[in-house]
């Protein structure tokens, strides 16, 4: 009886550790940062660190839903770019500019663009049976092309557009540093709840583990896959708003280099690229870890050519840790 209880407790501990391994790695790095890196614990740096985590968490949360299904969404980066261009134009150069409706309508339109991309991706994958790799790579190219084209047409000869209203820039933390953090936290809480506490969430894991079995069990597979891409697109639209406000400019290439960080946060956090395991909470750990590594390396003033090298090694180390857990056989619950 005692032995069985101990075994149960050990298993519980293993599962807890497995689910939260990146949190422990993050904490180790955090402690090292506080102890060894000058100015790391300053209020200014902590504020910036959190501000930098915020938009990455929003877009990575959306991608997590798609990855849990074993898919991928490349179009997130071009949604960020396209939203940035159109958002800046609406706020600065359009007839809306300067009116009280400018900011709310801009937010609605940019998030709407993300949702439209999500709908297209969702239909292509769920109805046309296109692999998500192909469908979202296509929409990524379309979105990136549209961003540059709109930029060249709307920005009157310049590629980027600054001069965004201060009230809009507050969404990126200008003057109100906690605002993007609160937005990201609310989104995280909602989507973490959705994936962990609802029937929809359970169905997503079931589809990720085995879509055929899920379908036989009565799970509306097509509808759910469609919704995953809509969520991913919509949250990329929200991230576009935050990134644009944070940088104070509409830039047609805003999202171009972000995919590594977005997908890195999801996978490093512990969500299985093959689907069925992980969650939004894991992505939070991945975002906090990756942003922390960049922050620490910058603060340490390490020569630039070492930075990517060290970052790559650390990411591999984190991935190896995840792999060890997988091989230890402590996974298999199908959800975080």
């Amino acid at each position: 009886m005692m032995k069985s209880k101990a075994k149960k407790q050990d298993q519980k501990f293993q599962t807890f550790l497995q689910d939260n391994i990146m949190l422990f790695v993050f904490l180790v790095f955090l402690i090292c940062g506080v102890l060894f890196v000058d100015k790391f614990a300053s209020a200014y740096n902590i504020k910036n660190y959190l501000k930098n985590c915020a938009p990455l968490l929003v877009v990575s949360t959306g991608l997590t839903y798609v990855v849990l299904n074993g898919g991928i969404d490349f179009s997130t980066t071009s949604i960020i770019s396209l939203g940035s261009v159109l958002g800046a134009h609406l706020l600065v150069d359009s007839p809306l500019a300067g009116t009280p409706l400018a900011i709310p309508l801009t937010i609605i339109i940019v998030v709407g663009i993300g949702l439209i991309f999500g709908v297209v991706n969702g239909l292509a994958v769920s109805r046309l049976k296109m692999p998500s790799f192909v469908a979202t790579l296509s929409t990524q190219l379309i979105g990136a092309g549209l961003a540059v084209w709109f930029g060249s047409v709307l920005f009157e000869g310049a590629v980027s557009l600054g001069g965004l209203p201060e009230a809009f820039r507050a969404i990126g933390g200008k003057g109100i540093f906690w605002l993007p953090i609160v937005i990201a936290a609310v989104i995280f809480l909602i989507f973490n709840w959705l994936i962990r506490r609802t029937v929809f969430g359970k169905q997503i894991y079931a589809i990720g583990v085995n879509p055929r079995t899920a379908e036989v069990s009565g799970v509306p597979v097509k509808k759910n896959i469609f919704l995953l891409f809509v969520i991913s697109g919509g949250l990329a639209g929200v991230a576009s708003i935050i990134y644009t406000a944070k940088n104070g400019a509409g830039v047609p290439t805003m999202g171009d280099a972000m995919f590594i960080d977005i997908v890195g946060s999801v996978v490093i956090g512990g969500t299985d690229p093959a689907g069925g395991f992980g969650g939004v909470k894991n992505t939070l750990y991945g975002v906090m870890f990756l942003t922390l590594v960049s922050n620490i390396l910058n603060l340490m003033g390490i020569e630039w050519f070492y930075v990517d090298l060290i970052k790559g090694v650390l990411v591999i180390a984190a991935a190896v840790l995840n792999l060890i857990f997988k091989n230890l056989g402590v996974r298999g619950r199908g959800r975080a």
């Binding site: 310049a158 600054g162 940088n247 400019a249 830039v251």
Partner: peptide
């Protein structure tokens, strides 16, 4: 990198 975005 960008004359507008660097304003932030």
């Amino acid at each position: 990198n960008d004359g507008a975005a660097i304003a932030a």
